[in-house]
Amino acid sequence: MDPYEILGITPSSTDEEIKIAYRKRAFEVTGGHMGEELPPDIAAKVDELNAAYDNIIDSRRGNNAYSYSSTGSYGNYSQFYIDLRQKLRAGNYDEVEGMLQSIPENERSGEWYYIYAQVTYKKGRFTESAEYAKRACDIDSTNPEYSDFYRKIQADAAGGYRQTQISSSDECCKLCAFLSCLDCCCESTGNDCIPCC
């Protein structure tokens, strides 16, 4: 059966619409069941839903595989670090950490510290991650990728995430932006929507 049909959407639906459709269908089928196991007939329907959802999401991600841009990747990274980055993207955090630990301390480059900072951040060891991110910047201060990550951690440390909360809830921003655009369009045709603007 067509995965889009199972979720009740079309191929032109956005990613967000797909996720919303999945949640709605999952709730319809399970009734919000809170347990690790389901009755067999419902479990079968949920498996079908999951297969459809994963199929669509993976195929869309597959189309975007080459749009990943490592902005500011300087120099020639050896194949080892390229592999590590791929494994990191795939979510194999334990494997990445193990591979990094196998490099002796005197051979650890800025890239080593950056990827270690990334994997510890993914694993929730934020204190350790911040230290390693700083080390990466100390070793290679010209790499924008390293400094972007460290700057993000420092911004969060200073409370910058509160701004993210406000801009995620940007209904007022959208309204002001819309009115401001409307006013400009009106003025360009000789009229005026908002006289004081």
Partner: peptide
């Protein structure tokens, strides 16, 4: 700062999940 870095990661993590209600 330690507390805030955790809060930042929490806010980022919320973005990865879709809510049908009460998102705000």
């Amino acid at each position: 700062a330690q507390l805030n870095i955790t809060a930042g990661a929490f806010i980022d993590a919320l973005d990865e999940v879709t809510f049908l209600q009460f998102e705000n």
